[in-house]
Design a protein around this nucleic acid. Structure first.
Lengths: 224, 224
DNA sequence: GATAGAATGTAAGCAAGTTTACATTTGAGC
DNA sequence: GCTCAAATGTAAACTTGCTTACATTCTATC
């Protein structure tokens, strides 16, 4: 439904032309973080753009009660830290390496200078930040307006392009910011409607029916 | 606490130099919408950048049950529609004029061309989109981690710079996406702690104590 | 295969926000 | 000053997601 350029929702490295990518790689200071090591803390103000070459980075924050709220997880090709470049805002989330993560970091001044000389880089960054913004707006919107089963169905469609989602219920719970029990109940409902098949560590989707189900209770389709 | 450039969180028109502003004004096709008229619908795909000269624009969506969820309201100097420029995404929210609203609209191709030639415009747009993204991330984060009184306190501090918030409880409820009853209860709690004084259509803040209260239960201070 | 750790299904009680309802207070306009 | 619509305070019943708890099912690995 939503007519999209191939660029929407894709990581920075993928939408940049080769020349820019190689510049980024050369300009970066490279560093590898072992699994579980902290890349930056919430509130950090050191400014610069980071991008992931290998491994993943998990963003989140500890709750006051000792719980931990995962905001998102990024993988190879994705970048973060834009807010420190343009808005001079402190980091909103802790960043922790998942697996050994190799991260390239470019100093603020260096990147801004390149940006002024490279319209294609500017466009790409605008694309990345804009689609991220609208993704988050969707999430916020959905959280207020949709029931759990619908939110879950939407997320499953986003994640499981080929009709299979290889995630545990706990991982789904983290992504949607709810408890595992809630996910389990919602999956039961979807299964009763014959929209999915539950498995161990994975879920099989009846993509067509599921899509109808989501569309019927509103909203634009997932951005994914 | 959060060291900010003056640019963060401010509308596009204010952070652009005069030359760019006058270009925008000349390049735009101007149109005035009477109070309550629809500027665009959810799902619209016509691409272009819009900015507000006079009046306000309210963004929101009808719920399936007939209710209406307000996402935000923008005023003079602010722009919208970036997602149609860079990510080619359909509009996520209805836009409706509040008061007579004069809107300038620039076609996608025209703006993109200018953008490639004008680093300062690109930087400004990146600043706007990035701070908006991080504002939304904060909201999402807060919704999951903070209790109502704290969320409300944070919002009051953002809105009421001079120690006074001239909003009804219903308006606050719309902004935080909760019911009026919940706002009323939260205000009662804040008043019992002597952090605010409730009035009719307005709330007086004891800014210092309120700020302490929010800081004590975590989080970075409001971006506003 | 046997087994232990991980993942899942489900129930009970709790917490927080919603809706509905109604009494009270406020302030703008006559 | 009076009046009335708007705004506010509060209670009751309901909904939904959370936590805790425990039984069951699955699968990697010995």
């Amino acid at each position: 439904m939503s007519t999209q350029t191939p660029a929407a929702g894709r990581p920075l490295i993928e939408i940049l032309p080769e020349s820019e990518v190689s510049w980024l790689r050369r300009a970066a200071r490279w560093r590898t973080f072992q699994d579980g090591r902290m890349i930056h803390m919430r509130g950090d103000t050191r400014a610069g753009l980071s991008f992931i070459d290998k491994g993943c980075v998990r963003f989140g924050n500890p709750g006051t009660d000792g719980s931990y709220v995962v905001a998102s997880t990024m993988g190879p090709g994705e970048c973060f830290g834009e807010a420190t470049l343009f808005a001079d805002l402190p980091r909103t989330h802790e960043a922790v390496a998942v697996g050994a993560a190799t991260i390239g970091m470019i100093k603020r001044e260096v990147l801004l200078e390149r940006l002024d000389a490279s319209p294609v880089l500017a466009r790409a960054m605008l694309t990345v930040v804009t689609s991220r913004l609208y993704g988050v707006l969707h999430v916020l919107d959905d959280a207020q307006r949709l029931t759990m089963p619908v939110r879950l169905a939407k997320h499953l469609l986003q994640v499981g392009a080929k009709g299979i989602v290889s995630l545990t219920q706990q991982q789904l719970a983290d992504r949607l910011g709810v408890s595992r029990v809630t996910i389990s109940k919602a999956l039961t409902m979807l299964a009763e409607e014959d929209l999915i098949n539950r498995g161990y560590g994975r879920i099989l989707l009846r993509t067509g029916k599921l899509r109808n189900f989501v569309e019927a209770r509103n909203t634009l389709l997932p951005i994914g």
